[in-house]
């Protein structure tokens, strides 16, 4: 114990909660990926020193209350419309850092149009996409990203392609759009992936200052309650099944397409 007292001194702290996170206890279920991603965004905001310049757009879904946890200005958007709020906010205040934070139902289903068009316009915003293959808040219904065979409360016998269509690879679609500059798929299930994910989020924010297009960061995540698994087991299930269909890593790391390549057609 004497040792512990020597170690646990202020000057020996190597990791502590960032001040950009509030002291509110998160409402998320134990082990929820949202908490980790919130933390990473807050850490990036702190490291870039942009707390006074960042506006977050929260979605409808479990992370609707993101504004209770990250100590910045927030707009709580209508379901799926966060990219529209973000578009106007960024265009009206181009020097601010604007990011949307959306789940799979919000971003890939009801808000698919807003997502694709914001990315296609190349809005200089950062879009954070939490893909846990499920509607968490409303009780674990099928999302566009639910894997085939995966049981949800609206696919109690497993997702069936004839009945429900195919799991949607939104990130691949977004990567094909000329307006995006950085499109990546990350996760936060272990320490290494958390570090990688943080770098990706940081790059997404830094890209805003460069004004090179939309940065889109999918974070393949778990929904322990919806998946009906303990957190550790859910992470393992994700690695085994989700990663096979949603491969991890960068899909695009460039700048938005050069406008000159498009102007030439009418010349």
């Amino acid at each position: 114990m004497a040792d512990l007292e020597k170690i646990m001194k202020e000057e020996n702290i190597v990791y502590k909660k960032t001040k950009v996170l509030t002291d509110n206890v998160m409402h998320y279920c134990p082990g929820c990926s949202h908490g980790v991603v919130h933390k990473l965004i807050a850490e990036v905001i702190e490291e870039l020193g942009i707390q006074d310049k960042t506006i977050g757009i929260s979605p409808v879904g479990c992370s609707v209350f993101a504004y209770n946890y990250i100590d910045i200005d927030w707009q709580e958007a209508a379901h799926g419309r966060a990219p529209a709020n973000a578009t106007a906010t960024k265009r009206l205040m181009p020097d601010k850092f604007v990011f949307s934070y959306q789940g799979d139902g919000d971003l890939a289903s009801i808000g698919a149009a807003e997502t694709l068009h914001a990315c296609n316009r190349g809005e200089n915003i950062t879009m954070i996409f939490i893909n846990n293959a499920m509607y968490g808040m409303t009780g674990g219904q099928m999302a566009p990203t639910t894997l085939v065979g995966m049981k949800t409360s609206t696919t109690p016998y497993g997702r069936n392609i004839d009945l429900n269509g195919y799991p949607m690879k939104m990130t691949e679609i977004v990567a094909s759009l000329p307006g995006t500059c950085y499109v990546t798929r990350q996760s936060v299930h272990d320490a290494a992936s958390v570090k990688r994910c943080k770098k990706a989020i940081k790059k997404g924010f830094e890209n805003q200052a460069k004004k090179i297009g939309t940065s889109f960061i999918e974070i393949t995540s778990t929904c322990n309650s919806g998946w009906k698994m303990p957190p550790v087991e859910a992470n393992k299930w994700m690695e085994k099944h989700m990663f096979a269909y949603y491969p991890q890593g960068d899909l695009k790391d460039a700048e938005r397409d050069n406008p000159d390549d498009y102007i030439k057609y009418i010349k």
Binding site: I7, N12, V14, V25, G35, V36, K39, D190
Partner: peptide, 25 residues
């Protein structure tokens, strides 16, 4: 006794409840 202060625990913690210390003794 076994802690090496790697902070892996804090990195994955969804609720940011872990503070990590590290020193040479």
């Amino acid at each position: 006794d076994s802690c090496i202060g790697c902070a892996n625990c804090a990195l994955v913690c969804p609720d940011s409840v872990i503070t990590v210390y590290k020193t040479k003794i």
